[in-house]
């Protein structure tokens, strides 16, 4: 049996074992010609038990993880939000991980927090702040799930303000800003602009 098969079975039998197996999983996966992040996601999906227990273990894996491990956890959240025969969907039980990721300045984590799980579970104020932070830090808005359906008047106002601030400073406006606001509408909001 390969290391990764063995690891998946261990976690399915005893969820707690994910704590020891998860950090080394990606490099073992690579030696087997597998994608490290995929194998890490498989380990999380294999954790059995009620939502509280799964959420406790996934949170510990995230908190103890380096940034690449954290990224793997964030990207696995949509998978955890589907039921398997051995556990129910986690629902919003792991939304605190997204809040943590959005507080970091690691653009990979910020982008991942705005994926499918974030689109489904982040409350509007946090989600909007996340989108503006993505624009600020150069995360492509392609990574933001449900951008058009979740955008609202408040987000458009926030992004228009960002555009105005950048223009007032003579700095470039990120191209992705125009995916949220209408270019003509943003023109009108530039303060002190001679017309």
């Amino acid at each position: 049996m390969t290391w990764t098969d063995d690891a998946r079975r261990s976690v399915a039998a005893d969820g707690e074992s994910v704590l020891a197996l998860f950090p080394a999983a990606a490099r073992h996966a690579r030696t087997e010609g597998l994608d490290g992040e995929r194998v890490r996601a498989d380990l999380l999906v294999a954790i059995p038990g009620p939502v509280d227990e799964v959420a406790r273990l996934v949170t510990l894996v995230y908190q103890r993880g380096d940034n690449v491990e954290k990224l793997a956890v964030l990207r696995a959240l949509p998978d955890l939000d589907h039921s398997t025969g051995r556990r129910p969907p986690v629902g919003g039980a792991l939304v605190d991980l997204l809040r943590d990721a959005l507080r970091t300045n690691d653009t990979r984590l910020v982008g991942a927090a705005l994926g499918r799980y974030g689109a489904d579970h982040l409350e509007a104020p946090t989600w909007r702040q996340g989108v503006v932070k993505a624009l600020f830090t150069g995360v492509p808005l392609d990574e933001v799930e449900e951008l058009s359906t979740r955008s609202d008047a408040t987000l458009r106002r926030m992004v228009a303000d960002l555009v105005a601030e950048r223009r007032a400073a003579g700095r470039d406006v990120p191209d992705d800003a125009w995916r949220v606001v209408d270019a003509d509408a943003a023109e009108a909001t530039v303060p002190g602009r001679a017309s």
Partner: peptide
């Protein structure tokens, strides 16, 4: 930056 983060 984002490319570098992926394991594949």
């Amino acid at each position: 930056v984002l490319r570098g983060s992926r394991d594949a």
